[in-house]
Amino acid sequence: MREEEIIEKLQRLGLTKYESVAYITLLKLGPSKATDITKESGIPHTRVYDVLSSLHRKGFVDVMQGTPRLYKPVNPEVILEKIKEEIIRDIDSLKGAFLELYREVHGEELPEIWTIQGFDNTVERAEYVIRSAKHEVLINTPLEFLELLKNEIKGRKDVIFVIISNFREVPDWLKGDNIILARSGGAPWLMASWIIGDIDYALFFGALPRDTRKEKFYSFWAKSPRIIQNYMHWFYTIYFDNSEIIKPPNYEKLPKPLSLVNIRTLIVLLKFAGLPRKAEIVGRIIDTKKPVTIDGEIIDYEYTPLTANVTFRHNGKELKVGGIGSYFEDVEGEKFILLE
């Protein structure tokens, strides 16, 4: 990293330009006199003592008393870790304060959908969706945008990816055992791009800008299980079901137990894994809303644009299990755990 970049980042952490330069100079020289720091850094002699005193107050410099007085840089790992902890505490405090302020004024929770402005901010949010997912990530986007997420996708071997794009051929970095690929079919590409993580976060947007630096670009960020459940349904029924699967998962090599939260992702996997499959299902009895965890075997499934459920044999009895929001089945499944 260039020294100019380091100075810029230190300024973002609260140091002035002179303080940043002085600290970098001390890292180069080790314990030094103020005159040596002035000579090496170019900081005016009339300013250097104030700069070093400020660095001492901020925890970046230790003062070694004596004649002459020496200034010693604090270990960067120590001071940066301290700053990191302080920033995290401040962010957590601000989150609570902002939520409380919003509730006081509006009497309700924050909106479930936010507008994200800027292409780079959209890419960062898409990366966050992938990093934070615990079970599955659904992606429908042109290959041009998908390639921007390459490192995040390669780094996650512990979740299932279902990815739809305008593939011509499969890149090597998308050949993981945990990845299902489909080539876009009848669904129009300009309708939307989706990046969905579990039922926690979703990002969606329209056509990509031709010039990401100049054109205004907006995407939409959702954090609501109720809304995201609908997005997941649309992802499968509008896009996936109208696309051609070009790379199945390598189910036998996937680590077990394997947890999923979407009934349609479960059924797509079962089509390749075969039946029956030992499993555990966490959810609620639909009639009573009572929480339940049942173990047994998935012995059949039903998958149509309107219906998605599995037949589950538990203690000699067959139950119909649907996904979140089910009301025709016996059990509303919130988590599906494949055991073999």
Rank of each mutant, 00 (worst) to 15 (best):
D172L: 05
Y218S: 10
D200F: 01
I37E: 10
D172N: 09
R69L: 05
E77L: 08
V321T: 14
R125Y: 03
M1E: 11
H314F: 08
V51M: 10
R213M: 07
T16A: 13
I130R: 00
P248G: 09
L55R: 03
F235H: 07
K17I: 04
Y102N: 07
D200N: 13
E77N: 10
P188Y: 04
Y236H: 14
I153P: 00
P44A: 03
G185C: 07
E152G: 00
I337D: 07
S224E: 10
N230Q: 06
E302Y: 08
I227C: 02
P225Y: 07
P142G: 00
R313W: 09
K154A: 02
I263Q: 07
M1G: 13
K216P: 03
P171S: 07
E244W: 00
L10R: 07
E5M: 11
E144M: 02
V74A: 04
T293C: 08
G206R: 12
Y236L: 07
V159G: 00
A192P: 03
E340D: 15
S32H: 14
K95G: 03
I139W: 01
S326D: 03
T38V: 11
N262K: 04
E340N: 15
S259L: 14
E104T: 05
G155C: 06
I164W: 04
L258A: 10
S193D: 00
R69K: 13
E332W: 03
P73S: 03
T311I: 15
D50W: 11
N250Y: 01
P31T: 12
L306T: 12
E77D: 13
G30P: 12
L101K: 12
P142D: 01
G325F: 06
I79Y: 08
G118S: 06
Y251F: 15
H56W: 10
A187K: 10
V21E: 12
K9P: 01
L143W: 01
